[in-house]
Design a protein around this nucleic acid. Structure first.
Lengths: 357, 357
DNA sequence: CTGAAAGCGCTTACAG
DNA sequence: CTGAAAGCGCTTACAG
């Protein structure tokens, strides 16, 4: 027999349970359990002996049994609108860092634009598989009369606001828009198109409001700015570009409220022979990685994605430990303008056109 | 009291358990359990009555209790090297589609280049939290003497080969390289640089082997081709570009074995004033989304990411149902060349240089 | 501080 | 086909 013994299993190959470990160490099951979960309740010398024995044996408690008895799962459900959107993974990493440090695991619920998935998320909550929920999707999961808030779990929202009395971690959307307008105005732009997010979306409302405030603050004429409808998607950026190309071209700059839209817009412009930033300056929003791969590299408003996740996870942990209940509590993180190559001064642009490369 | 009653809870607010439901419906707990998990064992009329009652009450069985008793979790661990790499989310979606259809959930283990995370993954397996494991990371998780294969769970590998007797779902790497070389040779390129993956990596070996076979098959001189070391990362593409710029420039085309490397390479070239495809053609590998956002859009070998995930999940399901045991079994999916703007004919290029835009 | 025992909420032989 | 009962592997009052 040169086959290695299975880790944490007896000579009969069966997985060891706590009773086996207790017998092996000559203590009670309760003592093993306490040494593992409430070490301060066991006398130091005994505790060390048990812990050392457990490590040597390679024992690991059964999660289902522990969860059943302790009535908690040490798992959190993270609802993401679309995991393929490059914005979210970094937020999830922030969540994972903070939650993992505290012993919690993640179940990622990828909504994938399929609202019928809400049913499964609610099942996960109702069946006790998670102790808390983090919503990045802007909505309370609801399905056939059942709603997430009907269950007794802590919930926090992030990235997108939700009309419910729960803690939120958002960014300074209005301020970010002001900064974008200021950046463009400083470059001499007087007429800017605002490429919007989905109508009715709270984040969108904040950004548009900030845009108008920024326009006034920069001394531009509100009546000369243009509003283009969009929905954050690449496709809506492409659509906006096509409408722009087909109509009068009064603006010299575009402020797109997502990088995806900005990139779809720029690509379509280039295909049509309109150059960015020579003919048109473009500002994006989010700071996704590929905003630095495209050409020109995209000037954008960088959201602190990791920090958003980390802070929201912290708020959930507070709720899990009973320190915080369900009530509206909005925190805002700052957004940073990262000026790259998609924005340039209005006049210099016209002169230098074609002078590059 | 206009507060809605909590779903699946009694008038006292306590969560309903199966015994409560059974009493409410006037049947035994066993019957409720069977109606839910083994409906064919219950007489149709009774079954319907129970199922209807369960739905009306809004009852959902406790997962921990079910897992403990049934000795399974209906969860699968998916080990991903780096979830922020845009290649993986689509593979994970393929897995999720197939596994979800069969009632399994996913725990995503993001390795994030931190091998110490293997310890946590092993804990997840050893504590019975998952029934199977899918490895996209090219390695068997090992930590301090414990190894994944020491546990009695089905394991399948995908995307990257692993030196262990388990099912694999890979792509036609060698063939893909041949196709890339053929594409470049058809455009008139005679000297190609091969930008490699990590040395020793089985997938890399296959791709390089296919490259050499393709060179010979296309009638090119093996001795005139160039090998550049890389590791699939954006940074290694940038590094290769810098070395290329600093040395003799003998090649007219580059075959990068990842899109990340290709994009890093092209960006660095452009910054230095070398144009793609006018001065140099570039082929990538993977078919990530942003290969279509960069400029020029990247000619690349598209991997069937969703299908890789789906097929591998299917193999795991077979193993979970006992139809398949742990043994080496490699399946290969085809890779498709998607010709875009980063490759062009050698002669036409030189003539047209600068003629664009 | 430690141990014996109850019990978390299910599933599944077993008996009828 | 249905039900009564054992038991999955832990944690946690409770007693000492």
């Amino acid at each position: 027999m040169n086959q290695a013994r299975k880790a944490g299993s007896g000579s009969d190959g069966r997985t060891l349970k706590m009773a086996d470990v207790a017998k092996l160490l000559g203590v009670s099951v309760a003592t093993v359990s306490r040494a593992l979960t409430k070490p301060e309740q066991v006398r130091p010398d005994l505790r060390e002996r048990v812990l050392k024995g457990v490590a040597e044996i390679g024992y690991m408690p059964n999660t289902a049994a522990r969860n059943l008895r302790a009535r908690k799962s040490m798992m959190v459900l993270v609802v993401v609108p679309n995991i393929a959107n490059p914005f979210f993974p970094e937020v999830v990493r922030g969540i994972d860092d903070e939650l993992g440090r505290n012993g919690y695991g993640l179940i990622i619920g990828n909504l994938d634009q399929q609202p019928e998935k809400y049913a499964r998320f609610l099942d996960i909550v109702q069946s006790g598989q998670v102790d808390g929920v983090m919503l990045l999707n802007g909505h309370i999961p609801v399905h056939q009369g059942r709603g997430l808030l009907d269950f007794d779990v802590p919930v926090v929202a992030m990235c997108a606001a939700i009309d419910a009395p729960i803690p939120h971690v958002l960014v300074e959307n209005a301020l970010a828009s002001k900064v974008a307008v200021r950046h463009l105005a400083d470059l001499g732009h007087r007429r800017i198109a605002y490429l919007s997010g989905p109508a009715g979306n709270v984040v969108e409302i904040e950004r548009y409001d900030g845009f108008r405030v920024g326009v006034v603050a920069a001394g531009l004429d509100l009546g000369e700015q243009v509003y283009w409808p969009g929905d954050y998607s690449l496709a809506s950026g492409v659509a906006a570009a096509k409408r722009f190309l087909a109509g009068e071209r009064k603006v010299t700059a575009v402020y797109a409220t997502s990088d995806e839209m900005a990139i779809g817009f720029v690509k379509t412009m280039h295909t049509a022979g309109v150059r960015v930033p020579q003919d048109l300056s473009v500002v994006g929003f989010d700071g996704v990685d590929y905003a630095d791969f495209c050409e020109p590299t995209l000037t954008t408003l960088v959201q602190p994605r990791h920090e958003i996740g980390r802070l929201a996870a912290q708020r959930l942990l507070e709720a899990l430990s009973g320190k915080r209940s369900r009530k509206l509590h909005i925190e805002r993180l700052p957004v940073r303008l990262l000026a790259r190559d998609s924005t340039a001064a209005v006049r210099a642009i016209t002169q230098e056109a074609g002078g590059r490369i």
